[in-house]
Design a protein around this nucleic acid. Structure first.
Lengths: 230, 230
DNA sequence: CGCGAGCTTGACGTTGTTCAACTAGAGTGG
DNA sequence: CCACTCTAGTTGAACAACGTCAAGCTCGCG
């Protein structure tokens, strides 16, 4: 199970959020006092849909998936890498998680008492402003996601997904991704079988090379075209 | 075309946002100086997807629909009534509208210079905090929407839509709604024909009564059940 | 070497869209 | 006042998209 520690020094932490530069030493020390560090193993759940929000979550190290759970199928919204806060908007809204976050590799999460965190933002306008920007950017991303799901067909959505990993997550035309085919499908809002089928089609069409979870994009422009036409 | 005026007194405006109570007289006067009032007729577009964000939009009077435009079909995200800001998150993000807003009845919109507005939030933490809460709530709504679209089938989604109008927009079990069948379908992410078909089914099943755009819900609990099971 | 999880493929069923024909009502001009 | 037209709404039938089921495969691991 998850291992819990206390931070030794947030100030000198190599994984600390860039946002901390907007706070003075006193407040950073207060964060440290109101924070626990939790180490999650791959597959463990960091926060669970429909439960109360009690902490702000900062992903110091590792990679997680954020997804909406459904009766029959899940929808993976995004893959979050280290150095980012997870789901800030739930701190200022209903205080109930409307998504689940699970580690897809061993991860280290700073959990900061939510009441304290919200108070802190009230005392530090610049910090709050940055957080507002982050929430807004995240909202815009969800708008794009909802639009894609609504407008595009399977091939377009899978093209989106491959491009997302290439451009946003791994920033390379070839990568070994950490998701199973089922997760790839849940990210693209389709059945696992169809995700596999379309990967095969793209391979046969010479757009990508696949080997297990390794993907190399041969024709990125064509893939972008497929994403556009939906 | 839209008629433009200057505000005479934001301070004494009967339509003013409750958020203004968090600002002092000086700042409210500044808002007034940086604001123009635009009157839109039913059907006119207030802001257009993919264009630059130049103003904060406050809906003083009227009703509008906010929707994502697609090649073949649109997705209506929400119906916004008077007294609310429209799409605050675009002010703190990419500054490009990722949705279109259109008046569904004659409306009066206060357009406040966006640079000024963002500066104002920086100077007024309480105001910013309130706005952050609003953005967060709106984000959570979109999460619910994306979840519903992804998980539920047509009948569940139309039940959602009817309940949304009943509970959120008109706050009554019977109402005359302002949308066409096509818009009802665009709100529910389905074809217009299917929206009509399912309305007919629900009528035959004794769940609702419809007459033109008038709807009366006879069995709200059953409708909620249908929404739940999807 | 055998087991199991993840992956792959084909066949089939279901869901939802599209197309087409028709109806009702509201506005328009003679 | 009546024909005309236009738009919104309705319904059925054909079709396409997508999911489900089932069988077989592959590869890492005990």
């Amino acid at each position: 199970m998850a291992r819990i520690t206390k931070p030794e020094s947030c100030m000198r932490c190599p994984y600390k959020s860039e946002y901390l530069s907007l706070l003075d030493a006193k407040d950073i020390n207060l964060i440290q006092e109101n924070c626990i560090i939790v180490h999650f193993r791959k597959g463990e759940t960091i926060c669970k849909q429909n439960t109360d929000v009690t902490h702000a979550l900062y992903l110091a190290k590792g990679t997680v998936k954020k997804y909406i759970e459904g009766k029959s199928k899940n929808l993976i919204l995004k893959i979050i890498s280290s150095g980012k806060y997870i789901g800030l908007q739930t701190l200022f809204g209903t205080l109930i998680y409307n998504y689940t976050v699970t580690a897809i590799e061993d991860s280290m999460v700073c959990m900061i008492n939510s009441n304290f965190f919200v108070e802190l933002t009230k005392q530090n306008p610049e910090f709050l402003f940055k957080i507002t920007q982050t929430i807004s950017t995240s909202t815009n991303y969800v708008y794009k996601k909802i639009s894609d799901i609504n407008q595009k067909q399977l091939r377009g959505r899978l093209a989106d997904t491959i491009l997302y990993f290439s451009e946003t997550v791994y920033k390379s035309n070839e990568f070994e991704f950490k998701l199973t085919r089922r997760e790839l499908a849940e990210f693209s809002s389709m059945s696992m079988e169809n995700a596999v089928r379309i990967l095969t089609e793209y391979r046969k069409e010479g757009i990508i090379i696949t080997k297990g979870r390794y993907i190399k994009i041969l024709q990125p422009d064509l893939l972008r075209k497929l994403s556009e036409i939906g």
